[in-house]
Simulated scan of single mutants.
Amino acid sequence: MATDPSLTCCRYLLSAILAMEPSYCLISHAKACGEGSITEQVQQFILDHCLSTPSDFYAPYLKNFLKKLITQVESDHGSVLDKFYQLYAQYITSFKDDSLDKRDSRICKRISFLFPDGCSELQTCSHSSVLNFPSQCSINMLEGDTGCSIWPSSLFLSELILSHPELFSNKVCFEIGSGVGLVGLCLAHVKASKVILSDGDLSTLANTKFNLGVEQPEC
């Protein structure tokens, strides 16, 4: 049976929000779900499945996403669900800019990889088509700094590793500049015989060590 394209788009949208991708990426996924516009059905999906627990998100990130979503729907002459206005108003009134000065604060991004239905070879959770890796990041590095950011190259390499485990299983793997450790976690998941991670920054290494100690993966 063919896969429903709208269902696939919604899965990508959910994964993008959990991974806290940039707002323009979320808007693009949301428009794809609505075949070119963020319909009320798509908005309801976001409320029910993506933002069911808004407290799980870093406040400035969610505030920015809500602003972009409302602006996009209004510019397309669509109807914004009242709940989005309420959430945005809540963040405007409660968010304090001085929270950005807490440089040692951390949040957890959940990096999700989607697999076709029935593809269980790569997963320890054989009944799930989604594989989630939680990774801690520094709040002050969310906008694109080096060591504690999720780089697109690491996402592509992680996808390659999970898609072709036979290339990496039972191999000794060494990564230079491991960042948050996502690639290393994927290598361990496909049962590389030994994984060596390195980085030149002590705070990044400490963050990587923390991520390696988080229970992996989530399903």
Rank of each mutant, 00 (worst) to 15 (best):
A2L: 10
A2T: 15
P5V: 07
S6G: 11
S6Y: 09
L7D: 15
Y12M: 15
S15R: 02
S15C: 06
I17D: 01
L18R: 07
A19R: 04
E21K: 05
E21C: 02
E21I: 00
P22R: 01
S23A: 13
C25D: 11
S28M: 04
S28P: 01
K31R: 03
K31M: 06
A32T: 08
A32K: 01
G34N: 02
G34L: 02
G36K: 02
S37V: 10
I38N: 01
E40V: 15
Q41F: 09
Q41N: 10
Q43G: 06
Q43D: 03
Q44S: 12
F45E: 01
I46W: 04
L47C: 05
P54E: 02
S55G: 08
Y58E: 07
P60Q: 02
L62P: 07
K63D: 07
N64I: 05
F65A: 08
L66P: 04
L66H: 00
K68P: 05
V73S: 02
V73K: 06
E74M: 09
E74Q: 12
S75P: 12
H77A: 15
S79D: 14
S79E: 14
V80F: 06
K83S: 12
Q86F: 11
A89I: 11
Q90L: 13
F95H: 08
D98A: 09
S99Y: 13
S99M: 12
K102L: 15
K102G: 11
S105V: 04
R106V: 14
R106S: 11
I107H: 04
C108T: 15
C108F: 07
I111R: 00
I111Q: 08
I111K: 00
F113I: 04
F113V: 09
F113G: 05
P116T: 09
P116V: 11
D117Q: 12
E121C: 08
L122K: 00
L122F: 13
Q123H: 10
C125R: 00
H127I: 12
S129N: 13
L131G: 03
F133A: 07
S135N: 14
S135G: 07
S138T: 12
M141A: 13
E143G: 13
G144F: 05
D145A: 15
T146K: 00
C148Q: 09
C148M: 11
S149H: 08
W151L: 04
S154A: 14
S158N: 08
H164S: 14
P165Y: 06
P165R: 06
L167A: 08
L167K: 05
L167W: 08
F168H: 09
F168E: 11
N170D: 09
N170H: 06
C173W: 02
C173H: 03
I176R: 00
I176S: 04
S178K: 00
G179L: 07
G181F: 09
G181V: 10
L182I: 11
L185N: 08
L187H: 07
A188C: 14
A188I: 12
H189Y: 13
K191Y: 10
A192Y: 06
A192T: 07
K194M: 10
V195L: 05
I196V: 11
G200Q: 02
L202N: 11
L202R: 00
F210M: 09
F210D: 14
E215S: 12
